[in-house]
């Protein structure tokens, strides 16, 4: 009974989460071939040991060498990192004041405010990205509004630029930033602020010296929750970004679906995974510390 309790979910994750990575790694070492499935060599388990060693011999790091030789991939990784990093900062700058305001709101309002943050999170991600196409296009609502109030004379090109991608990321990932920060701020003991003020801190000093350090676990969790998925984001750059916005998620998708080059797509995924291992491990440690503390 007990064994089943551990065994079933464990086995499920091993087979459907861990083993697939092994397969991705194996295919990243294979070669592209015009066949179904489009790679070679294929492992034939029934063919004995000799076939297996031959199979191992046919694997090589050619695809990884290819990734370094074509600067499209290199640029895509760098630009994804840059976009993920900047949009995490933007999301923090937008999200923190909202979380802070929520935590300072009267207690009776808080459940309603929390609901207002969670509601968009339950609504379709795709639809929320789609909503911005109509707003950011040349004849879209934002341009109409700016022309009407007279800030600009000619419509701005916003859709299919990096700006649109940043807006899309901040918009869709905002709840992931607000919720962890809010939960740390809400738990905060208000008398600490009073103590700081009694001891001669100004309001601003108390914020920097007391509130911010206490909110740190929430800020860290929020930043990871935005940064890690954004790095491999596909939907936002493909709907809001143009051809100039290179992101690795989009490159992987195109390599797989348009070029049908599965070995190169797998190599792209493996490198993305290697880049992500460090932030993922840091995120887990932060979470583990939170639940224990």
């Amino acid at each position: 009974m007990r064994r089943l309790l551990v065994g079933i979910p464990y086995l499920w994750l091993l087979i459907l989460f861990l083993v697939p990575f092994g397969i991705v790694f194996k295919i990243s070492l294979s070669d592209y071939a015009v066949s179904i499935p489009p790679y070679t060599p294929k492992l034939d388990i029934g063919a004995g040991w000799a076939a297996f060693t031959e199979f191992l011999g046919a694997l090589d790091f050619e695809n990884f060498v290819f990734l370094t030789s074509d600067d499209l991939y290199w640029k895509a990784y760098v630009s994804s990192l840059q976009i993920a990093l900047l949009s995490t900062i933007f999301t923090l700058l937008v999200g923190f004041p909202i979380a802070y305001g929520m935590a300072r709101a009267p207690e009776v309002w808080r459940p309603a405010l929390l609901m207002l943050v969670i509601l968009p999170f339950w609504t379709s991600f795709l639809i929320r990205v789609y909503a911005w196409i109509g707003i950011l296009s040349t004849e879209g609502f934002l341009n109409q509004f700016l022309l009407w109030i007279g800030v600009i004379d000619a419509p701005l090109t916003l859709l299919n630029t990096k700006i649109a991608v940043y807006i899309g990321i901040v918009y869709t990932y905002l709840p992931f930033m607000i919720l962890p920060i809010y939960s740390t701020l809400e738990r905060m003991d208000e008398s600490l602020l009073e103590a700081a003020e009694d001891l001669g801190c100004s309001r601003t000093q108390a914020f920097w010296l007391v509130t911010l350090p206490l909110a740190r676990p929430g800020i860290i969790a929020g930043c990871f929750l935005v940064f890690i998925p954004t790095l491999g984001e596909f939907v936002i750059p493909s709907l809001l970004g143009g051809s100039e916005t290179l992101m690795i998620g989009k490159v992987l998708w195109e390599e797989f679906f348009n070029n049908r080059d599965w070995p190169v797509a797998s190599a792209v995924a493996i490198i993305l995974l290697l880049i992500l291992i460090i932030p993922i491990v840091l995120f887990q440690r932060n979470q583990a510390k939170e639940t224990e503390g």
Binding site: I228, P229, G232, A269, L276
Partner: peptide, 9 residues
């Protein structure tokens, strides 16, 4: 937090 493109692939 795993990017969906990796999980999907």
């Amino acid at each position: 937090v795993m990017p969906e493109v990796i999980t999907g692939l």
